[in-house]
Amino acid sequence: MEKFTKLTGVAAPMPIVNVDTDMIIPKDYLKTIKRTGLGTGLFAEMRYNEDGSENPDFVLNRPAYRNAQILVAGGNFGCGSSREHAPWALLDFGIRCVISTSFADIFYNNCFKNGILPITVSQDDLDKLMDDAERGANATISIDLEAKEIRGPDGGVVKFDLDEFRRHCLLNGLDDIGLTMKKAPAISSFEQSYGQHHPWA
């Protein structure tokens, strides 16, 4: 998993509450178990017209936000079904961080397992960041995970809290497999010892 330390990029504003996982990646795109290629289906029902052409009014289709790496969204982001394809689609598109006032629990946990940083802020801070994001490519937002700070284009700073274990995992690029592999020597030692004392096993 790619490490997340600092990120500076364009933030796309999505002032919609209760964005569920079906909105993030519609069920038509769930036939694959690959993590790549899902970016084209991200927000497909809002992003494309019925004939398959792009909806020019959707935020990620606007020139200023086509390369957005940060999403500033309304509360209860990621609610609905527990599909892990949702963070896969965000990451495949290029979104590394989502900022909101609240997240659905399963989506929130899945973000950390896939290298995406979900940041919870107050409504007042979200309003400020939403205002920054609405400036488009002329204004970038910087996120420092080590310092737990979001810095706006005018130098304003928003502090955020994060569970230290999850922070450690993102800073070091550790998903569940990576955490297990760090214990490989202890696992190997146990297997050898167990085999010696239980040769019939």
Rank of each mutant, 00 (worst) to 15 (best):
Met1His: 03
Phe4Ala: 06
Val10Lys: 04
Ala11Cys: 04
Val17Arg: 11
Asn18Ile: 13
Asp22Thr: 06
Met23Phe: 11
Ile24Thr: 02
Lys27Ala: 14
Tyr29Lys: 07
Tyr29Ile: 10
Ile33Pro: 03
Thr36Pro: 02
Thr36His: 03
Leu38Ala: 02
Leu38Glu: 00
Leu42Gly: 03
Met46Ala: 11
Arg47Trp: 06
Arg47His: 07
Asp51Cys: 09
Leu71Asp: 02
Val72Met: 05
Gly80Ala: 08
Ser81Gln: 08
Arg83Phe: 00
His85Lys: 02
Pro87His: 01
Leu90Ser: 00
Leu91Thr: 00
Cys97Asp: 04
Ala104Phe: 02
Tyr108Gln: 04
Asn109Glu: 13
Phe112Ile: 05
Lys113Gln: 12
Ile116Trp: 00
Leu117Cys: 11
Thr120Gly: 09
Ser122Gln: 04
Leu126Thr: 07
Lys128Leu: 15
Asp131Cys: 11
Asn138Val: 10
Thr140Lys: 15
Ile141Pro: 04
Ile150Glu: 05
Gly155Ser: 05
Gly155Tyr: 02
Gly156Val: 10
Lys159Cys: 08
Leu162Gln: 13
Arg167Val: 11
Cys169Phe: 03
Cys169Thr: 10
Leu170Asn: 05
Leu171Glu: 09
Leu171Cys: 06
Gly173Leu: 04
Gly173Asn: 04
Leu174Arg: 03
Asp175Arg: 05
Asp175Leu: 07
Asp175Gly: 08
Asp176Asn: 10
Asp176Met: 13
Ile177Trp: 13
Leu179Asn: 13
Thr180Asn: 09
Lys183Arg: 14
Ala184Trp: 12
Ala186Glu: 15
Ile187Gln: 06
Ser188Glu: 15
Ser188Asn: 14
Phe190Asp: 09
Glu191His: 12
Gly195Ile: 11
Gln196Pro: 03
Pro199Glu: 00
Pro199Cys: 01
